[in-house]
Amino acid sequence: MRHKDYMGLGILLLVIIFLPFVITNDYYLGVLVFTALNCLTCIGLCLLMGYAGQISLGHAAFYALGAYATGILTAKLGWSSWMAMGTGVIISAGVAFLVGVPSLRLKGHYLAMATLGFGAIIHIVLIAAVNMTGGPSGVVGIPSLHFFGIELNTDTRFFYFSWSTVIIGLLLALNLIHSRVGRGLRAIHGSEDAAGSSGVNTSVYKIKVFMVSAVYASVAGSLYANYVNYIDPGPFDVMHSVLLLTMVAVGGMHTIWGAITGATVLSLLPEFLSSMSDYFESLGLSYQPDYDTLIYGGILLLMMLFLPEGLVDGMNSIRRITSTMFIRARKKLVF
């Protein structure tokens, strides 16, 4: 298992290094940066949902906390971007603790609704607290990130930087999964009672993994603010939380690679569909970005009905089936 994980990391690294040589269009690099940010958030969400088995429908709120911490602290108070990102992480972890302590005592539907409510409250505050957040018009003039003296102001640079963050995030998440704590978390998912009677402090573990996943989202949010240099409440609504959950669920919750796959596929899908719009028109259909909601809903529903374990598991079972078919076919040929 572990060797496969590190092989996967190696392959991902190679793809990332060479991709900007193939894709030189800035727009597409930008799309890939957003993909990286979604991957980062989804890694955290996957730790929470897939490994510890706790649902969150409020992760866009932590994404927002990171973005607004960076936005407000850098553009309005003139802090350095790194300090702002760090403060965002601390704030997000603190809020996750405050929300997590009462919420994670709840289970199933109650937890889902509590986190959904939390996300909705944060979104309302972003719009209403005009003095601090700029309200609906948001925060402008957020500076770009500097990394060892290099300003990350081109799409290629930010592409490398954001995906490096994903690799580091992935590495840390894999460390966690294959550790004593990781086994404790997965045990909670398998059977909370048995985990407790094996000595796992289930309530503390759930709160801590909630905080870890909030930190991932917060870092992604800060990077988002640094990249687009402008934020408003739009992308941080409840729908974004649902979209993040969709990404994790579509890719397959039980492995971190599922989260990466889901985040990548669903981030690229709208671009793919709109690039195909000429083709759709030749069929007499017109594709509009408005259809995204419908398409996400449809994909999520189909996945849950027919491939509830997600794309990664689904591909594995398809491979198994085809390979047995192949073997059978070969046997027939031989005899």
Partner: peptide, 14 residues
């Protein structure tokens, strides 16, 4: 429970 939650969420988005 998780799967049923996600299914009804999917229907709501749809």
């Amino acid at each position: 429970v998780l799967r049923l939650i996600i299914i009804t969420i999917a229907v709501s988005i749809l």
